[in-house]
Design a binder for these strands. Structure first.
Lengths: 125, 125, 125, 125
DNA sequence: GTGGTCTAGACCACA
DNA sequence: GTGGTCTAGACCACG
């Protein structure tokens, strides 16, 4: 459950990604209230400004809504949520396959590799 | 055939990655000669300094060798090449699977998704 | 008939502006009684405190009068009303012309643009 | 030529508007280079962060392009520029006419008012 | 020298 | 108490 921020990529982007994941995974349910900027910043041990920047970005994407003096909530537009979920999944997949092909792997190789990794997991975590 | 450099990630790193791919994929075969820094920089429309930095980095990794008066050549250490190839592949795969799981996909979902994307390709290339 | 409150500008100011318009346009005639704070707040789905603040501001301007035990009424000072009406009109006009000139439009352009927009309306209302 | 920043609206928004105008009016021509964040901030006597925020917003709109370590330039997409110019003009005009009508002015009143203001200008400036 | 990011801390309007 | 804005100043990667 630790947050493990990298040090090279911008922190605010890592926050965006992390929170985005939590929203899509349902940790923060649609319509649910998000922790305030200050609270969230305290949890992650980050400057409030940085968290603010992350929240603004999430709002730009449309994942969260700000209610002025009343905190922020996750969007209730579930279509948007599943849309983003699918979009992210196919983007990741296409990127992955493209990379592997550039490395010279065939379709079959890729499917086998996936299979191996999936079967062989769960021991170090 | 365009190189399509992003604008957010460091250019020299994108060059490193790109050339690394070309080497591993055999576009520049082991022992073969590489274009000079200037020539390469011209092709990609990049500042020679930037390309120089990329070459230095590739040399640090061990993928290319500088022959003083004879330009640069790809390493002939094929073990190194296949080692890097395998390492990159499994890194990509683990990263991919981790991401998809964070999005709430099951092992089965992932294998299906891979299958779909592989089957549905080949139209724009 | 919806009130369409923005979310960036202060709500109470939007209420002030809206009610001011309604008074000047004669929707609430001079000397006429205004809905109570609670009633008005309910109609617009706003916190009574916010509506209260709007009423206070309107009273400060002089547009509405509090009759202690008798609720609030629109001022009967018609000079004040027409004065405000003219002032608002010329302010809007000067602001508009200034903006258009900044955009590089000439006097003639502006008059033509006004003409076009006026001629081309009436379809969605 | 003074910049005259208001004090109530966010400074960075005023900067956005101001620079947007200058770009559309051709003060900063398409493809031309913009002053650096620091330089611009000095000119206007504003904190660099604030100017940065304004530039980021202008980039989001698409009016300016940032060239990493090479400063920022105005977009060369002249269609975009004229598109924005027209869009802003008609938005301003529609807003203006709507306001005036709410105040009880007729089409004829509006055209007359515009005419008067245009004819009567130039004395106090 | 340029843009990008981050921190620390402050003030304000709003509800 | 919430979000929004701003300042001051710092460090870094990049080219």
């Amino acid at each position: 459950m630790a947050w493990e921020l990298d040090s090279d990529r911008p922190i605010y982007l890592q926050l965006v990604e992390r929170i985005q994941m939590q929203i899509i995974a349902g940790y923060y349910p649609p319509g649910g209230k998000l922790p305030s900027v200050r609270e969230m910043a305290l949890n992650v041990a980050v400057n409030p400004n940085t968290m603010q920047k992350a929240y603004v970005e999430l709002e730009r994407i449309g994942l969260i809504v700000t209610n002025r003096t009343n905190g922020r909530t996750v969007t209730e537009d579930e279509e948007l949520l599943t849309g983003i979920r699918k979009k992210m999944a196919s983007e990741e997949t296409e990127y992955f396959i493209r990379k592997l092909k550039e490395l010279g792997f065939s379709n079959e190789d890729i499917e086998n590799l996936i299979h191996e990794v999936i079967e062989g997991e769960g021991k170090d975590e």
